[in-house]
Design a protein around this nucleic acid. Structure first.
Lengths: 339, 339
DNA sequence: GTGAAAGCGCTAACAC
DNA sequence: GTGTTAGCGCTTTCAC
């Protein structure tokens, strides 16, 4: 069953050539005669020769492999981002190792720490750990491993590229839109108060309220603990209090779905009693009852851009200048925010 | 920036020990004194020593890496399956390379062919290529690389484990359920007529019709070309013909969503004029308008089981017997099939 | 234009 | 209990 492996040695002996000649021929070196090249290539193809990637990696300290580290994979944003990442990576000849941290900062650290061993050439990451806790990332930098952040980023990392959407502006205009639709009491559900997007979006929300002369009510800024039970209880309690919000702006689609469930359970009418707007890449947003108004991120493009930056850092380090790339989101108005 | 790498040689010279002693100490060999072990371990920890995985892989012909190859990642089934795969793999100390073939058989072949080079120890795959076209998989087997199939499988591969749900029975009982709900003219939309799940589910559908004395109408067996435009046109045309179906049973959630869009566009009432049932793992099924009745696969568990089988094959080849594992789906009745 | 040899970091068989 | 050595498959000088 287990055939003898085809390696350079084998090819060389079959062709009565030296290993180094075969190696050069396969990489189309100009040192080698056209005739020899052809003989080598033909036999290699015939025997389905595949170079051992680890031998090459060991020699060259390059693995042609990148890691993508994401907090979760249920959120459609990450699904499309991963799709963009892997398409771009494969197109450029890179392999993609996937790590899902399940919103667990300790696990994220663990994963990142083990990245320093040369398994990957670089890392594309959307953070789950607080922005002020980036020691583990520092270690990567010190090892010379390029990192590209997307979505949930660490701004402090001066020499890493950062790909995001216009979080502040989107949250601002989303909130303004809710106000235009008649909302006076808008709650905001943020994914975390220690993560870039949480902070940026909250700022946009606050500024929009201020600009409209509406006071910010701290008790209506809900902070997720990334725990379904907790988040459900938090949102439920907020929506059921007297003088409840008439608008809810959620930062991730999971919370919008929780809100739907709560509203059904307690017969809160959307958009009559509560208008709902969420950052979301859900393909079913338009089919929900009521259809969900969304701020939709260009997730696929963000993933692609992240890999492009990473590969630039890997392959043209001299020409690489870390960039902050923004790709705008789109506000899609649907029934959940209708007047 | 780029610190000198820490390797065994470095540790050895720092400790005035030989490389092999250090190597053994780190792997807690009984040959080494407790004292030396402690010295070695302490320094390794202090310097954040991380063994070079490729050096080890080169020596041991084991990469502790598996590949997961899936046709797409939009379908929620695959998302949950990937989650199960990666969780189980990481728990067992394996890394996961991800390949999305975008339903392109040629690309799948390409990917699979390049798996023979030792980059991965084994492969978990859900096929996009026709069941009778498995030459590329044969090559893997011959190289001694274990393969585990899940969902879209190649039954012919006698010595590979296969993890599926009870496709035939689920399709049978789903179709029976539509009949019980009053449907007399049920169309079936299959993902492919050359893929295991397509065939199994179609059989279940046909048998259910036969058992109820309803004639199978070939023109109501719709076969996807995995092309959005084509599939939309096909379904639309079927739903708009006179004497149109009063029930539609789709094999993947994408087609159910297409059906929703078509019904909205042409004001076909679900479930009044058309009852809709689909295999699906959509988290929003219960929130759609109308809510979607689904046959939901235990995707996460299927992914986990696949990796468990693969690791068994890798680590206990002597004890490994390829298995056909079935994990039942659940029929969830919702509004889209109401009487 | 071709080949010999060193070495990437690690493990394991074999000294001592 | 510790050290020496060969070698995994490949690339890359450097000879010839």
């Amino acid at each position: 069953m287990n055939m003898e492996p085809i390696n350079l040695k084998k090819l060389a002996s079959l062709l009565h050539l030296s290993i180094s000649t075969v190696s050069k021929a396969l990489r189309d070196s100009h040192e080698i005669s056209a005739d020899t090249k052809k003989r080598v290539m033909d036999l290699a193809r015939e025997l389905n020769y595949e170079p051992n990637p680890y031998a090459g990696s060991l020699r060259k300290f390059k693995s042609k492999t990148i890691a993508v580290i994401v907090p979760d994979i249920i959120n459609n944003f990450f699904i499309f981002a991963i799709k963009g990442i892997q398409e771009m990576a494969h197109a450029r000849g890179y392999h993609v190792l996937i790590y899902i941290t399940n919103e667990n900062p300790e696990y994220e650290k663990d994963v990142v720490r083990h990245m320093t061993n040369g398994r990957v050439d670089g890392v594309v990451i959307s953070l789950t750990s607080p922005i002020d806790d980036t020691e583990h990332l520092q270690a990567l930098q010190e090892k010379g491993l390029p990192i590209v952040f997307f979505d949930r980023v660490a701004e402090a990392f001066g020499n890493s590229s950062i790909i995001t959407t216009n979080n502040y502006e989107s949250a601002y205009s989303g909130t303004r839109y809710l106000i235009e639709q008649g909302c006076k009491r808008i709650a905001h559900c943020q994914v975390s108060d220690k993560i870039s997007i949480g902070i940026d979006r909250l700022q946009g929300y606050k500024k929009a309220l201020e600009d409209s002369g509406i006071a910010v009510r701290p008790e209506w800024i809900l902070t997720s603990r990334k725990d379904y039970m907790h988040d459900t209880a938090l949102i439920e309690q907020t929506l059921l209090q007297k003088d409840a919000p008439d608008g809810l702006f959620t930062s991730v689609e999971t919370h919008a779905l929780i809100a739907y469930d709560i509203c059904r359970k307690h017969q809160i009418d959307i958009p009559g009693q509560l208008k709902l707007l969420s950052f979301s890449n859900m393909p079913t947003a338009h089919l929900l009852k009521p259809s969900l108004s969304t701020i939709t991120q260009p997730a696929f493009e963000i993933g692609q851009a992240a890999v492009q930056q990473l590969i630039l850092a890997l392959e043209k380090p001299a020409r690489y200048v870390p960039e902050k790339i923004n790709i705008d989101s789109i506000l899609v108005k649907r029934e959940s925010t209708a007047k």
